[in-house]
């Protein structure tokens, strides 16, 4: 049982939750995730570890309500418990000193981008942050990102906050101004695809963190398979980060929607505006 130490709503249907998970907190590195199950009838939900505190034995997760199980998590209050937390799972991000790193987060993907950005920063890189959302109310983690980036650019599709446009517009500008050693992009599939199309033109290595449907999260079922460089890989054990220039995003999009007729199930934006543009 894992007690919820604190819970804060950070946007519509998005919550920041600190929970007790000492074993995970002790081992966790940037880029890894946990699999959660709030109660006996729940699905196993993979969620990136946003932050951790080994001393207190806690981890922080950001949960967006997209289906029944995430709704159950969102309804839990401080002091209540989650049944299962397994992890840390997946490979940690390969962090080294590279120079200028552009970290791009779209929607709730910012929650996945943040820990990696923080680790890059701690390794002595200059991190430029770009976060995008459909509209002002959905811009999340601005303060957290600001604290670990040398510059933070914010875009909204409707121009209600930051600059009007897409994250790719802001990234174009950054690439024009400075030499970017590597890009990390996390967000809805169309956003990651658009970022990769852009960086490919500029020959900038781009990592993406994928969040396909998973079941066990330990390499046992293959639900999370993605095609990378023409080969099938399991996101849970081979990823979750892959070279974005090699990922088959169209296949990923289709696989993410595999259960949408049975349940509103997949993580990412519904009706991403960038999708129409790509």
């Amino acid at each position: 049982m894992h007690k919820i130490m604190s819970k804060k709503k950070i946007a519509e249907d998005i919550y920041k939750i600190v929970l007790e998970a000492p074993a995970v907190a002790a081992k966790r590195k940037a880029g890894q995730f946990v699999v959660l199950r709030p109660e006996e009838t729940s699905e196993r939900i993979p969620l990136t570890i946003f932050d951790s505190d080994a001393g207190k034995g806690t981890i922080t997760i950001i949960v967006q309500v997209v289906g029944k199980t995430t709704k159950k998590i969102a309804l839990l209050e401080e002091g209540e418990t989650l049944l299962d937390v397994a992890g840390p799972l997946g490979n940690p991000t390969h962090i080294e000193r590279k120079g200028n790193i552009a970290v791009v987060g779209g929607g709730v993907g910012t929650a996945v981008a943040y820990p990696v950005a923080k680790a890059f920063r701690e390794a002595g890189n200059d991190v430029i942050g770009i976060i995008g959302a459909r509209t002002k109310e959905l811009v999340i983690l601005e303060d957290e990102m600001k604290a670990i980036t040398s510059e933070l650019l914010i875009t909204t599709d409707d121009g209600s906050y930051g600059r009007k446009g897409f994250v790719t517009d802001a990234l174009k500008e950054v690439i024009r101004k400075i030499t970017v050693a590597e890009v990390l992009a996390v967000g809805p599939v169309p956003m990651m695809k658009a970022v990769c199309n852009l960086t490919k033109q500029h020959n900038i290595r781009t990592m993406v963190s994928l969040n396909p449907i998973m079941v066990d999260g330990t390499g046992m079922c293959g639900a999370c398979r993605v095609t990378v460089a023409g080969k099938t890989r399991f996101t849970c054990v081979d990823g979750p980060e892959f070279d974005g220039h090699e990922v088959d995003f169209d296949e990923l999009t289709k696989r993410l929607k595999g259960y949408s007729d049975m349940e509103k199930h997949y993580i990412g934006h519904k009706g991403c505006n960038l999708e129409n543009k790509v």
Partner: peptide
């Protein structure tokens, strides 16, 4: 349960 050896330890 939930202890993935190779990852958790």
């Amino acid at each position: 349960p939930n202890a993935v050896i190779g990852k958790s330890a």
